[in-house]
Design a protein around this nucleic acid. Structure first.
Length: 176
DNA sequence: CCCTGATTCGC
DNA sequence: GCGAATCAGG
């Protein structure tokens, strides 16, 4: 499995939206082991584990599909207290502005994008709610040209999302 | 047996 | 880094 930037973004996004690793795996086309392994590796917040792994000196693994070899790692620190599972509803204003002026700027550029985006076309692929639930749906907004998400969800999905350059890109597409 | 998430360790 | 095998609780 190749963990592209987009895949990782999706993983984080789904993970933080409170979906089970099995669900995330299905949606990403990989096994839950891959998902949880990656999540663990890149340091995503742990969820409440159903189990309390008691002290196990060693685990004899028959290794049905694995060969010999050896490796060892250091010890591990005690686990942090996991908060109760609290599925986070995706907010429309997920950009979470950090200051008033930035908020205004973001709203302005978002409005510009909305005005420039055609009213028909592919819809934003941002998942809303739990895919297992009947309440589940995708964002109802139209996606930005060339992007899987609408403006506000691009801001949520791409950490360094630049609305101004997006405006320029959309203008260029519209002009063509 | 189904589900869940976490960890280990060969690759 | 990756993820199947495995653990372990509900």
């Amino acid at each position: 499995m190749v963990w592209t930037d987009e895949k990782v973004k999706l993983l984080v996004q789904y993970w933080e939206s409170g979906q089970s690793i099995t669900q995330i795996g299905k949606q990403l086309g990989m096994t839950r082991n891959a998902v949880v392994g990656k999540a663990h590796r890149i340091g995503l917040a742990k969820r409440a584990s159903p189990i309390m792994r008691s002290e196990k000196p060693a685990q004899p693994r028959p290794a049905a599909t694995h060969g010999g070899g050896s490796s060892s790692g250091g010890g591990h620190t005690a686990a942090a207290p996991a908060p109760a599972r609290a599925p986070v509803q995706v907010r429309e204003d997920a950009a979470t502005p950090v200051s008033h002026s930035q908020a205004s700027q973001a709203q302005l550029t978002a409005a510009m994008l909305a005005a420039l985006t055609p009213s028909t076309g592919p819809r934003c692929k941002w998942p809303i709610g739990d895919p297992k639930s009947s309440e589940f749906d995708f964002c109802t907004h139209v996606a930005l040209p060339g992007k899987p998400y609408c403006a506000s969800h691009c801001a949520a999905a791409y950490t360094n999302w630049n609305p101004e350059s997006a405006v320029e890109a959309v203008k260029a597409i519209n002009a063509a």
